[in-house]
């Protein structure tokens, strides 16, 4: 893929495109603002999952769990609305397969229901606990299957999109997801939580059961791994800015 095509593909994602070699060092203000807005949205989504004050119901996870344990259907519904999508996305990124991600997300919630009546909010937040269960289930699945992860491939095409642009974007998605799928699981989990889900470092470290320093090490190794894996398709772009 040429630099021009890759840049175009990235630009069409609706997110900031990579900075091409000849671009000035500082980000163009619009792209920087766009990227910042994207990260802010991710962080807000993560906060909404964790923080009841953002939730329209203003009911904490602990309160919902107490009601869910009594079989309150509405409380269960709210917990599903609040957490199912993120757990599904997390598992799908780890496994590289949307259907398997659904299986894991469903199993996570079955365990949640099983423990709802006895749930005591001691220590970890509910979202941390859910991610940890999901990660363990993903590891078990990978352990059993030992297969190369397939592509979850985000279906981001929209009616009216230029077919060539869609093809280029999907090509890029395939490359990146394939590279992500070959990372060690703990590095992939770290990148998924911190980069794709906007989770704060302390919570991600807790999910992985490591210190924040160890998490930073996992993230750095994971990102270096991604850079190395994508060098063949985007090497010039990746090395463009820094000597």
């Amino acid at each position: 893929m040429s630099i021009v095509a890759l840049t175009a593909a990235l630009g069409e994602l609706g997110r900031p495109a990579v900075v091409v070699r000849d671009a000035p060092a500082p980000d163009p203000p619009s792209r920087a603002a766009s990227r910042r807005a994207h990260v802010t949205r991710l962080r807000e989504r993560a906060d909404a999952s964790n923080n009841a004050s953002v939730d329209r119901t203003r009911e904490s996870d602990e309160e919902l769990m107490a009601r869910a344990g009594q079989g309150d259907r509405e409380a269960c519904q709210r917990l599903v609305e609040r957490h199912l999508g993120r757990i599904h996305a997390f598992a799908t990124r780890i496994l590289g397969n949307a259907a398997e991600g659904e299986d894991v997300a469903q199993e996570v919630f079955l365990r949640l229901w099983k423990h709802a009546a006895r749930w005591k909010p001691t220590g970890a937040k509910l979202s941390t606990w859910l991610h940890r269960i999901a990660l363990n289930l993903c590891l078990n699945k990978r352990e059993r299957q030992r297969e190369t992860p397939s592509e979850h491939v985000a279906e981001t095409a929209h009616a009216g999109d230029d077919p060539d642009a869609v093809a280029r974007r999907r090509d890029m998605e395939r490359h990146v997801n394939a590279a992500l799928g070959t990372l060690p699981t703990n590095q992939r989990a770290a990148i998924t939580m911190c980069h794709y889900q906007g989770m704060k470092n302390a919570e991600a470290a807790e999910v992985l059961g490591v210190s924040v320093e160890a998490l930073e090490s996992l993230l750095a190794r994971g990102r270096r791994g991604m850079r190395a894996r994508l060098a063949s398709v985007a090497g010039e772009l990746l090395d463009g800015g820094v000597a």
């Binding site: 495109a17 990227r35 996305a89 949307a98 991600g101 997300a105 794709y196």
Partner: peptide, 19 residues
């Protein structure tokens, strides 16, 4: 800026479609 280029490439993975 170098980190930003890698960020952009990671973002190219796309969002996971909601279930």
């Amino acid at each position: 800026d170098a980190a930003a280029r890698l960020d952009a490439l990671l973002d190219a993975a796309g969002d996971v479609p909601p279930p």
